Simulated assay, not measured.
Amino acid sequence: MSVHTSGTAHRSRARVHLRTRLGAMGILLLSLSLSLSALIARPAHAADVPARGSAYMGMGVIPHDGQDGLPTPGDATQTEGVDVSSHQGNVAWSTLWSSGVKWAYVKATEGTYYTNPYFTQQYNGSYNVGMIRGAYHFATPDTTSGAAQANYFVNNGGGWSKDGKTLPGALDIEWNPYGAACYGKTQSAMVTWIRDFLNQYKARTGRDAVIYSATSWWTQCTGNYSGFASANPLWIARYASAVGTLPAGWSYYTMWQYTSSGPTVGDHNKFNGALDRVVALANG
């Protein structure tokens, strides 16, 4: 009787031990599963988001529109240009001029919180070598109003004068590098924000600003709104061998950003016309 009792007790303890181990394994597997789910669902770490002010024209084009080739060179009806920001630092403008670049846009501002520390060297340097140049503003519609950003832009380098060498300011409105692609705005609210910027810019300078954007962003975030096409020149971003479909309302582009050449040179662009048409846009 005692032997039987001992064996039964041993088997009972073994079963308890097994259940304990299985329970522990289950808890471990559940913990791993929850950890994996949390990792998958976790938003991008703050370290993955660039610092405010570091955005530049075309920052979102490569990941969204890709790059599948360059335009055929040697088109005499187009004029080469560049756009630069603080990423390029002090630019060797004479070298660019010698390579055939005849116009430039320089980032002046972003939101109502950032001015380009290299703006003076870039804006005046391009002018001094003979280029026709203008300034651009990187829009952040989630931070302040369109009118407030237009004022900030004009007050910090984005103005215009009829000297034959100054292009109208450009509104860079594209993918949000700091968060949601459309800055948390509905399509109608985005159109309203852009309209407020454009109206205030014209009130301050007398010129209609250039709109820089990509067709895919414009379609997603404005509903492919066509109402600005009659007044505002289009600067289309498309890193490809052709511009492709333009946003609604525009039957042609004024400028085309066709490639990004890296931090030392800036992005390259073609003006849709000979140099005299660049001068015409500058003069209004």
Results as ranks from 00 to 15, higher is better:
85 S>H: 14
140 T>V: 15
123 Y>I: 05
103 W>P: 02
38 A>V: 15
14 A>Q: 14
163 D>V: 01
113 Y>C: 09
158 G>C: 05
189 A>T: 13
21 R>H: 04
8 T>K: 11
131 M>Y: 08
93 W>G: 09
282 A>S: 10
128 N>M: 04
272 N>W: 01
224 N>D: 09
90 N>K: 14
186 T>P: 07
185 K>H: 09
130 G>C: 10
203 A>C: 05
22 L>K: 06
197 F>L: 02
160 W>L: 02
108 A>N: 08
158 G>V: 00
172 D>E: 12
93 W>D: 13
240 A>N: 07
235 W>M: 09
33 S>C: 09
36 L>A: 00
29 L>Y: 11
173 I>M: 05
183 Y>N: 00
212 Y>R: 15
66 G>T: 15
55 A>R: 08
100 G>D: 04
197 F>G: 02
87 H>I: 15
138 F>E: 11
88 Q>I: 12
25 M>Y: 08
143 T>Y: 10
232 N>L: 03
233 P>W: 04
7 G>I: 06
19 R>I: 12
122 Q>L: 10
207 R>N: 08
186 T>I: 04
88 Q>L: 09
89 G>Q: 09
7 G>W: 11
36 L>N: 02
195 R>G: 10
75 D>V: 09
86 S>W: 06
165 K>E: 03
190 M>S: 00
53 G>I: 01
21 R>Y: 07
208 D>G: 02
240 A>F: 08
134 G>N: 13
48 D>V: 04
64 H>V: 12
170 A>Y: 11
119 F>I: 02
